[in-house]
């Protein structure tokens, strides 16, 4: 039983680390602010969840498990709010996203008050 828990935990931690590194690569590589936000979104949803689930499988008692769940739920509720606030502030202050050139038939030009 223990060996399965340890193996599962290692697997989740490995997937989480890979997703984290991918998000970091995206943060370095993508061309503008809005696309970089999507890369950060990867590290804040699934990568965090995977690493925390990997830790949950190793937790010594129930209290630690519950605390890890609190951290996970908190991160999942907080991150969309923070990224919405950030994107809204950026668009409000004239930061125009770089858009794909082929599909400008229905793109929306941001209106600035």
């Amino acid at each position: 039983m223990d060996i399965f828990l340890a193996a599962g935990s290692s697997l989740f931690l490995l997937i989480g680390s890979f997703l984290c590194l991918s998000g970091g690569l995206g943060l370095l590589r993508f061309p503008d602010f809005y696309t970089r936000m999507h890369a950060v979104g990867v590290t804040e949803t699934l990568a965090t969840a995977m690493i925390l689930i990997g830790l949950m499988l190793q937790s010594p008692d129930a209290l630690v498990l519950l605390k890890l769940m609190v951290i996970l739920i908190m991160t999942l509720f907080i991150s969309p709010t923070a990224s919405h606030a950030l994107a809204h502030a950026a668009l409000q202050n004239n930061l125009v996203p770089k858009l794909n050139k082929q599909n400008d038939n229905e793109e929306v030009t941001p209106s600035n008050p």
Partner: peptide, 22 residues
């Protein structure tokens, strides 16, 4: 831009949470 910096700080913070738990 300034927003890239705020985004980086935000990401740094969430990764710190993970690092502390690990």
């Amino acid at each position: 831009t300034l927003y890239d910096r705020i985004l980086a700080v935000n990401m740094f913070g969430t990764k710190t949470v993970l690092l502390i738990s690990l």
